[in-house]
Simulated scan of single mutants.
Amino acid sequence: MGNGVQHRLRRFELVRYEDASVTSGTGVVAVGVEFPSGYVEMEWLNEQNPNLNTAANGHASYPGGIEDVRRVHGHGGRTEVQWLDD
Rank of each mutant, 00 (worst) to 15 (best):
P36M: 04
L14Q: 02
L14Y: 07
N3I: 05
L14M: 08
G32R: 01
H59V: 11
E13W: 05
R8H: 13
V81T: 00
G65H: 04
D86M: 01
G27C: 05
A56R: 12
V28N: 06
S37V: 00
N51P: 04
D19E: 04
E41D: 09
Q48V: 09
E43L: 04
E18A: 12
G58H: 03
L84W: 04
L14D: 11
G77S: 01
R70Q: 11
G32P: 05
R10Y: 13
P50K: 02
Y62L: 07
Y17V: 02
E80F: 01
N49Q: 07
H73D: 12
N51K: 14
L45K: 02
S24N: 11
R78E: 05
E18V: 14
Q82W: 04
V33D: 03
Q48E: 13
Q82M: 03
R71D: 14
V31C: 11
S37P: 08
R71I: 00
L9E: 06
M42R: 01
E47S: 12
V69S: 05
T79E: 03
Y39M: 06
A20T: 14
V5R: 15
N46W: 00
N49M: 08
W83Q: 06
V33C: 02
H75A: 14
Y17A: 09
S21C: 08
M42E: 07
R16S: 12
L52D: 08
V69C: 12
L52S: 03
H75I: 05
G65P: 10
A56G: 05
M1L: 05
G58C: 01
T26V: 15
S21P: 01
A60N: 11
V81M: 10
V5H: 10
V15A: 03
V72A: 08
R8F: 13
V72K: 11
T79M: 09
S21N: 12
A55V: 14
N57K: 00
P36F: 06
Y62Q: 05
N53E: 14
Y62A: 05
G64A: 14
G4D: 12
V29C: 10
G76N: 13
D19Y: 08
R78A: 13
V81Y: 10
G25F: 00
Y62F: 15
E67H: 09
Y62R: 10
N57G: 15
W83Y: 13
H73G: 00
H59T: 08
G4H: 12
D86H: 02
F35S: 09
R78C: 09
Y17T: 08
L45Y: 00
V69A: 06
Q6F: 03
R11D: 01
